[in-house]
Design a protein around this nucleic acid. Structure first.
Length: 413
DNA sequence: TCTGGGGTCCTTTCACCC
DNA sequence: TCTGGGGTGAAAGGACCC
């Protein structure tokens, strides 16, 4: 589901090469959401298919290679995709289905090594150094994964095999779809330097523009520029990072458990909204969702952050750090409302609002102090009771009164 | 062409403390 | 008393990823 397009000038994909210095695998499912949909709609095989919301202000989530051949790609506005490829079948996304296949695929990975680092529902890094004696060389393990994913789920994936995460990821992209590419350490520079700078992880549209202004178009160009120049132009961290990547230096290990740093939800309205009551109702709905997710994950958080996007797409965020961490929707909502009011956008047309909690830590590590006058049993217990009701009776079992009111309004409208 | 929703990380600015 | 600077944490914005 990568959204970068390497229009490129890299070497032709190979599957050979010495894989002894290549313990890192990057497995990337091909056109994942679209491939899962085709399992239920086999008559659409070989045709352009786009997964994305057919109405409203959506973007393309996934597209088959037949649609990509007509210029459609992920993150493209649906309206544009429809114009480019009017004959495409459009399928609204079913995230539950993709999550189920994703879980199964990750299970295949975990049977090979505990060192699995998922990056998204459709891709992961694996460190297979410890599995060699049991399962063979990295390239053999990669071939086995591809065969098993195809056999069990009927979908293809591509695998990059290399000595580092960064090269493995580029390799999987280069051999898509349904391929495998081994890049031995000795071949890294030759593999890397002809690629456009935009192929590098961390080089998006803006950074690419900055680099092109400096006359830097390929990774090889980048490698020849002094680090100090890159740091002056792009900042200390980014400049240093790219200079290392340009020579294939990437020491980051495969990390199986990366803790969550924030949890948030946001929503784009079907039409822009300037009614503060509607905004506040949305803030409540989002606060409820965020708090429920935090309780489910066993997290509390200290910083409440609100995101507001105006009709012209300009975006502001406001945040406040609380004295004590919380997982209580009513506390998050109260803070979100204060931040919204302080932002002074109460009569401005907004297209999106979001609520996010940062500074997460495990709920059981937080010794919560009751503030003066706070009741010992209150919102937290009420919301935990709501969690239990939702688990038993479904997501609409319990709602705050103002959201019920909002729903009735929608039904009447 | 008109831009979703979930995130992470970096940079800059500012307040505050010592 | 005034000024300065380093360190730190919070806030805001933005680039980037899938």
């Amino acid at each position: 589901m990568s959204r970068k397009q390497i229009t490129g000038i890299g070497p032709a994909p190979r599957t050979g090469g010495d894989d002894s210095g290549c313990p890192i695998l990057h497995v990337d499912m091909d056109a994942f959401f679209a491939s899962v949909e085709l399992l239920e709609r086999p008559e659409l095989r070989g045709l352009p298919v786009i997964v994305g919301s057919p109405a409203g202000r959506g973007v393309v989530l996934s597209a088959t290679y037949e649609a990509r051949a007509r210029g459609v790609h992920s993150a493209m506005p649906m309206s544009r995709a429809r114009r480019l490829c009017p004959q495409a079948t459009i399928i609204p996304p079913s995230h539950g289905k993709y999550a189920e296949v994703s879980r199964g695929v990750m299970e295949i990975f975990h049977a090979i090594t505990p060192l699995v680092e998922p990056i998204a529902s459709d891709e992961a890094f694996l460190d297979v150094a410890g599995a060699r004696r049991r399962l063979g060389s990295p390239a053999e393990i990669a071939a086995g994964i591809r065969a098993e994913v195809l056999e069990r789920y009927g979908i293809t994936c591509s695998v990059g095999v290399a000595g580092s995460k960064f090269i493995a990821k580029l390799a999987s992209k280069q051999c898509k779809p349904d391929g495998m590419l081994v890049v031995p350490p000795d071949d890294v520079v030759a593999f890397l330097h002809p690629l456009p700078v935009s192929a590098l992880w961390g080089v998006g549209e803006r950074t690419e523009q900055s680099l092109v202004r400096l006359g830097i178009r390929t990774v090889g160009d980048l490698a020849r520029v002094p680090v100090s120049t890159l740091q002056r132009e792009l900042g200390q961290a980014v400049g240093g990072h790219l200079a290392a990547l340009a020579w294939g230096r990437d020491e980051r290990p495969v990390t199986a458990h990366v803790p969550d740093k924030s949890i948030g939800n946001e929503e784009t309205f079907a039409a822009d909204v300037d009614d503060p009551d509607v905004i506040r109702r949305e803030l409540l709905r989002l606060s409820e969702r965020v708090a429920a997710r935090m309780r489910k994950a066993g997290h509390v958080g200290r910083t409440v952050s609100v995101k507001l996007r105006r009709a012209d797409f300009s975006t502001i965020s406001r945040s406040r750090t609380l004295k004590e961490p919380t997982d209580v929707a009513q506390e998050i909502y109260a803070t979100a409302c204060e931040l919204f009011q302080a932002a002074g956008l109460e009569r401005v047309r907004l297209r999106l609002v979001g609520v996010r909690m940062e500074g997460l830590r495990p709920a059981d590590s937080a010794s919560r102090q009751l503030s003066l006058g706070e009741r010992e049993t209150g919102w937290r217990e009420a919301e935990q009771a709501m969690d239990r009701a939702v688990r038993r009776f479904g997501p609409d079992a319990v709602l705050p009164a103002s959201l019920v009111r909002g729903r009735l309004d929608e039904m009447e409208a």
